[in-house]
């Protein structure tokens, strides 16, 4: 809330919002400085200020924007109900069903990998409203109240002891038709907007935070008295340049998007550049930190630097798996950007 007051919480929003309308250059400075100062990422607000906001700004109705955006600035938190047990990389295979009854949908099914769903007020929900035709065509995008009757949430214990992700169970949950984004059956396109905001803007914030956080790695080198170890210095120099390249491609991506010359696959390149740099960053810390990093330590959840490099290393998988895994991004780059042919659809055991 202090960041909202100072106008630093949502620098990526348009200028009619308080704290919005910052230039890209200003945004980069804000993110790099926040990371340098070790300021916690606004993790609880991540989905609300990026995913929900960009979905509403691009695809929502005026009435939805007026109702939800001010609430997000006041601190209302959102989660994302996209993946399901049977629909991960193949997201369009979702089965959670919504049936239109009068002025509301009745939703039943199960969602998984919803970040911070246990604390969320609202949910960006993908549901199936039709099973006819191509699987993408039967998908509808809803805004669901997490306190509605029939919603239950179970946090999932992760390998680093965190409970960042949750399962959401939906049992005849009623969602008003006024909370549908876009038309019925057109939810897949809306979902692409949500996901592309993740692969674009958020990655600029994260890349510049990673650049700012390189000073944590420098501290670690000094703490372990490795500052004259040529092998460590080379590895560090390589890492610094890799992080700089991840920042440069995130910049270029936004420049292209603003200039209207974004190409299919660009966002995937940005995401994979970030996730591999992040993995290298954490692996560097685990290596230089030595045995100390193998002892469990009290850690701050949700930040780039939890205080333990082994935990950071485990956390780095969130970016090579979530939001379209590294492998899915490679397919997009190869098939849609490099135009390498798709494999035949059908297969027989």
């Amino acid at each position: 809330m202090k960041l909202v007051g100072a106008g630093y919480a949502v620098p990526h929003w348009p200028e009619q919002w308080p704290g919005g309308g910052r230039s890209l250059a200003e945004q980069k400075v804000i993110y790099e400085e926040l990371a340098r100062a070790d300021s916690p990422r606004l993790l609880l607000s991540f989905v609300s200020t990026y995913h929900a906001a960009s979905t509403l700004m691009e695809c929502g109705s005026d009435e939805q924007r007026a109702r939800y955006l001010p609430a997000i600035l006041r601190g209302e938190t959102w989660c994302q109900g996209f993946s399901e047990p049977g629909a991960g990389s193949d997201l369009a295979a979702i089965k959670t069903k919504a049936e239109l009854r009068g002025d509301h949908y009745v939703v039943s099914g199960q969602k998984v990998w919803s970040t911070m769903a246990q604390y969320a007020d609202k949910c960006l929900l993908l549901v199936r409203t039709s099973s006819d035709g191509p699987k993408q065509a039967g998908i509808t995008f809803l805004l669901m109240d997490m306190k509605a009757k029939g919603v239950s949430v179970r946090p999932i214990n992760q390998i680093q002891g965190d409970e960042e992700f949750c399962e959401i169970f939906l049992d005849d949950v009623e969602v008003p038709v006024s909370d549908r984004v876009g038309e019925e059956g057109k939810g897949w396109v809306v979902a692409q907007t949500t996901l592309s905001s993740e692969r674009g803007l958020t990655l600029m914030e994260l890349s510049y935070r990673m650049k700012g956080a390189l000073n944590r790695a420098a501290d670690l080198i000094r703490q372990n008295k490795r500052q004259d170890d040529v092998g460590v210095l080379r590895e560090f120099g390589k890492l610094v340049t890799q992080v700089d390249a991840a920042c440069a491609i995130a910049d270029k991506f936004l420049e292209n998007r603003i200039g209207g010359v974004e190409r299919i696959g660009d966002a995937s390149i940005v995401k994979n550049s970030y996730s591999s740099a992040l993995r290298a960053y954490a692996a560097f810390g685990v290596n230089v930190g030595g045995i100390e990093e193998q002892y469990r330590a009290p850690i701050t959840f949700g930040d780039l630097n939890t205080g333990n490099w082994m935990a950071d290393f485990m956390n780095s998988y969130a970016w090579t798996i979530a939001g379209g895994s590294e492998e899915v991004q490679r397919n997009i780059i190869a098939e849609r950007m490099l135009e390498m042919p798709r494999e035949p659809k059908s297969w027989v055991l």
């Binding site: 440069a248 491609i249 270029k252 390149i269 550049s273 492998e327 397919n331 190869a334 490099l338």
Partner: peptide
């Protein structure tokens, strides 16, 4: 495909840093 996609990613990121 995945090897080509990784190479493309590395070339494009290095180019962004160059320019």
């Amino acid at each position: 495909k995945h090897r080509c996609a990784d190479l493309k990613t590395q070339v494009v990121a290095a180019e962004a840093l160059l320019w």
